[in-house]
Design a protein around this nucleic acid. Structure first.
Lengths: 347, 347
DNA sequence: TTGAAAGCGATACCAC
DNA sequence: GTGGTATCGCTTTCAA
């Protein structure tokens, strides 16, 4: 039984060959019609299209990619977690842009574990993706090897990286923590606290903490306590983290949080305790998250273009796929928001 | 040039044939070692593995699937939006479970548009996914045709559906809106408001609104205003939606929101305006979202197991793939949370 | 405008 | 234990 057969394949799925047979043309002609490649008559086209409709043909893109030795239209995207709305937004930015250009996001949740990233990478690469977007700049040696050898567009996001493996878009988290620390020391604060969550690996949040700690040390202040909770960085974690921190360090004057949601949790804890803000204690968050827009006061924070990071990353991958010139690395920066949850002037 | 060649392919990627050649065995033997299938000596195994490592071989799963005429390990997952943390959590539940069993999530954001779902479906099906999880129970005719003909496990989530196309897990949103409405009418409320967001299509939120409206009508109350904003259902939308609603309907006694985040936005607007809660106005949300855990009072709401819906959906797909018995449809239910942002007794 | 044949990278099947 | 050969569904290439 040779080329132009009409028996169904093992999956009982309609194949191009069956379409061709039914339309009375060769596989090649049917293939040309399908790709609208030209080189066929209108009547042929009509016949083939009719059969496609009638038989409910769904092309097997696996075979297409395979035959052409091309890449798929997949783009692998790894992010640490979805529960964290910051990353959900970054992902939304990526998928919106990718989807608009006919690409599909293959998701990889690493849960902040480099080994999980490595495992995911191996799998996703075996599907011949057209590009890769990964969160963070640190990877296992094996991951780096895979990433470098893949020969496809790669963007490392979130942490800005001036010498990326391929491309990068993000911001300097150390600087962002440093700038908040400097702002707060400038207001006369001396006794500092930090509440965040801990993960196995060096990550962006710990870079912010490092910058914060650095400027505090340099200016003669004291970072009384850095609390790293083993929990998701959300409202409630901020709430009970603040409770813990204040229970043991009642002299802390201001607390910096891993993000705004945790800060709002802390804020509410303080209010419940009857502490005045910023009179008794200062509160600073990070990320300028949606919740900040409805508080009765402006939360001291750092604004970051989450969605934009995702969109830019997707654009970088897409333009690289299309062989256009691209920017290797882009720093989207950050904006410190003074707010009213810390002192407004030097005391 | 026959079977055991060693020239690199067009993508400059290492193939099994090259590994085999380098190790001095046939492709088949190399393939067996790779799959740890048995039927080779330890020394052969060692030689092949060494070459795999040395050459940095990454298998081409496209070819594997193709050759075996199997399905891929992809599972297509469509959700309306990621910015909405409810769906982000559902997706997290799905991907965690799927990832643990060696499957990959191929994302599809439909932005609440049925046509976008249809377009995505066509694409994702061409990649021979092992299963499909889609949000919602309404689809275009073409989508239904594709879904029915796909011959792979399919779960419709979010809206519980007693006669799904294949399988379903979710809850009855109409009932959930009805139960809240009944609770509120039972407390003596008569003038009702609703604040949500609008989307083109019939969706779960509008089913809740319908249930709410139904019970209000039946009990002789009045749904003064149902405000459907063209915006994402977040904190700020709830805030300004409440402002709009109250400006035109000052006699409304209680407002039901599309979700807790919007309710908290409304709550903050009321507080800013100096309205007492629940004295001057009652507030009810939906979803029991994280923010509710840190408020100084319990938000009246409806608790729903978001993450669990995702996990169950993934489990349904997985067990179906593995040919195990499965449940066709599962109603995860909901729990009304009385809270303290509405009257506590009949007035 | 059309078609026949070769081949993409792996696996199934059968022979040795 | 090991290897040859056919094959998956499609595109590339070349010829008509």
């Amino acid at each position: 039984m040779s080329s132009t057969q009409n028996k169904p394949n093992k999956n009982n799925k309609v194949s191009l060959a069956q379409i061709a047979k039914a339309a009375g043309v060769s596989k090649m002609t049917a293939s040309r019609v399908l790709r609208d490649e030209g080189g066929f008559s209108e009547s042929t086209r009509a016949r083939v299209m009719a059969e496609i409709d009638r038989l409910g043909y769904v092309p097997n893109r696996l075979a297409t990619v395979f035959a052409g030795d091309q890449r798929s239209t997949f783009v692998g995207v790894s992010i640490p977690e979805l529960g964290n709305e910051i990353f959900a937004q970054v992902l939304e930015g990526i998928d919106r842009k990718l989807g608009a250009f006919g690409h599909q996001t293959v998701l990889g949740m690493t849960e902040h574990a480099l080994e999980q990233e490595e495992k995911w990478l191996e799998t996703v690469l075996s599907w011949q993706p057209a590009g890769l977007i990964v969160t963070g700049r640190s990877h296992t040696p094996k991951s780096i090897q895979l990433l470098s050898g893949a020969g496809i567009p790669l963007v490392e996001i979130w942490d800005f990286n001036s010498s990326p493996l391929d491309m990068s878009v993000g911001l300097n988290h150390f600087d962002s923590g440093y700038s908040m620390g400097r702002y707060l020391t400038g207001l006369g604060y001396r006794q500092f606290g930090y509440v965040g969550t801990s993960h196995d690996t060096a990550n962006a949040a710990s870079a912010r903490l490092a910058g914060y700690a650095k400027v505090i040390g340099d200016s003669g202040g004291s970072l009384k306590k850095q609390l790293l909770l083993k929990d998701a960085p959300g409202f409630y974690t901020g709430y009970y983290g603040t409770e813990q921190l204040l229970a043991a360090n009642s002299d802390v004057e201001v607390i910096y949080y891993q993000n705004d949601n945790m800060a709002v949790g802390g804020l509410n804890y303080c209010q419940k305790r009857g502490l005045s803000i910023p009179g008794d204690i200062g509160i600073a968050g990070w990320g300028d998250l949606p919740i900040a827009s409805i508080l009765p006061y402006r939360l001291t924070s750092t604004a970051v273009p989450h969605l934009r990071i995702g969109m830019i990353a997707a654009e970088m991958v897409l333009s690289q796929i299309n062989g256009e010139a691209r920017r290797r690395s882009q720093d989207v920066g950050f904006t410190l928001i003074p707010g009213s949850t810390v002192r407004s002037q030097l005391e």
